[in-house]
Nucleic acid binder design. Structure first.
Lengths: 255, 255
DNA sequence: CGACGGCTTGAGGTAAGTCAATCCACGTGG
DNA sequence: CCACGTGGATTGACTTACCTCAAGCCGTCG
């Protein structure tokens, strides 16, 4: 057996490849490469589709810088990891990738992968989008826990849920039904029920929200958004701005 | 325009559907449904492929119970969210889904989706696997931040990295090169550099690890694994146990 | 009416954060 | 070969956000 590239090795944990598959993967991973020095960004938040990057050697990190300058690393990328398949489906990066040490990546031509995507059934693509945005929401939750305090976390969650309920047409103005107990909120935000309670009280006292009878009402959307340091980019609601006035109508004012 | 089901509404944020597509989605979402009462599990950790579940109404949560009994909710699922597409690719659930209120789901026959998957090119499937495990790792990081203390977090990270470096053949016995600064570790674990330092010292004092010259050596794998309350299930290294002795050789003893 | 689940509030404790000084390994230039 | 600068690691003293324990409250439902 030939010692192949790290991506192949990784994927083989899952599927057995034919020699042909393996040759193909190796070819992809070796034709074009590029190297970044330590502390350089391989991809930046906002970048659009270009080549796909596959880490071959070195160590990189998926991270985001928050408004206050703090950084949250959401994942370490080791050889065999793909940096940016999601850009295909999500249009633009919602976070950055930085090299921690000198890092070499294989560059996979956009259209090689594009073939896969465009040949997909419309529904399959939509499915991809769904998975990818789910991941993005997960990443945001990591930031919540790592770099936001109790008040910011709750505010962020409530604002996100407002957007999500609007998306599916289940928010009336700035209210939505959100039938969670404080204990469940605690389990979601990684705090204790007691502290959730105090934080809710604070948000209520500040006139940002009202939360009674399982219905959450956002009294001051702008203020809540700020309190949660919310930035809608990660939800990838691309069509809103342009094409579709109807969709835009649903969530547009929240972004 | 017909008011369609929540999945369609959600996906339309991203793609414009033809009337045909929309009809198809609606059909999928309405043929078979099932309702769960509040506090019932829709899916349990360990469940294998069955029907795919699409939330139609109610509120559910993606969660995991830790060994000490604490629960971490990783995501709220609202109408339009899919509970378990990943099972297709990952063989079994690595977490549970519970209904928080009475929740109705559409049941999508496994083979309807299976068609999509099996018709996929081997590489595309592998790509899916890659994305799905990435998500699983993200979820694990949420648990880290929400329900593990500093020592557990660092221990968990170091053990996970050992497994990942083994997977790509870049660990020598229980050592691997991990060229991160303490500040970067802090950004990844959501703590401060100072506290990372103290935690490292503790792990060193306990003879669990050695970390000098960018090389991390796990002195006592079993103990480190326990310290991080590590459970390999989320990495979905399915082939290891059975088929492939070579793959198993790489990571087998760690699981 | 009592019981129960969930919410609220207080008092006191602790893990982790902040600020700041010191140390150490290294690379570079005189 | 030593002086120096620099980035990172280490350690101490003090603060704080959040946790724990525990009691009381409130609405609803049998």
């Amino acid at each position: 057996m030939i010692m192949s590239n790290p991506l192949t090795m990784k994927l083989e944990q899952f599927t057995a490849f034919s020699d042909d598959d393996r040759r193909r993967l190796d070819a992809i991973a070796s034709t074009r490469t590029r190297t970044w020095g330590a502390r350089q960004d391989i991809l930046r938040e906002g970048d659009h589709v270009g080549d796909i990057h596959l880490v071959l050697s070195g160590l990189a990190a998926r991270y985001k810088i928050l408004p206050d300058g703090s950084r949250q690393i959401m994942a370490f990328l080791v050889p065999g990891d793909l940096c940016d398949i999601e850009v295909f489906v999500l249009d633009q990066m919602d976070h950055s990738i930085g090299a921690l040490t000198e890092t070499k990546c294989a560059l996979i031509a956009a259209d090689e992968v594009m073939d896969l995507i465009t040949n997909m059934h419309g529904l399959t693509r939509a499915l991809w989008w769904s998975t990818m945005t789910d991941s993005a929401v997960l990443r945001e939750r990591i930031i919540d826990h790592g770099r936001r305090d109790a008040r910011e976390r709750i505010a962020h969650l409530f604002y996100e849920m407002l957007v999500r309920y609007r998306m599916i047409g289940q928010a009336i103005d700035d209210s939505y039904e959100f039938p969670v107990t404080q204990e469940e909120l605690a389990d979601a935000t990684g705090m204790t029920p007691v502290h959730v309670n105090r934080t809710l009280k604070q948000l209520r006292d500040e006139q940002l929200i009202e939360f009674k009878g399982r219905v959450l009402t956002v009294l001051d959307p702008e203020a809540l958004k700020n309190a949660g340091r919310f930035n809608a980019a990660y939800l990838h609601l691309q069509r809103t701005e342009q094409e579709d006035p109807l969709v835009s109508e649903r969530v547009g004012d929240l972004l």
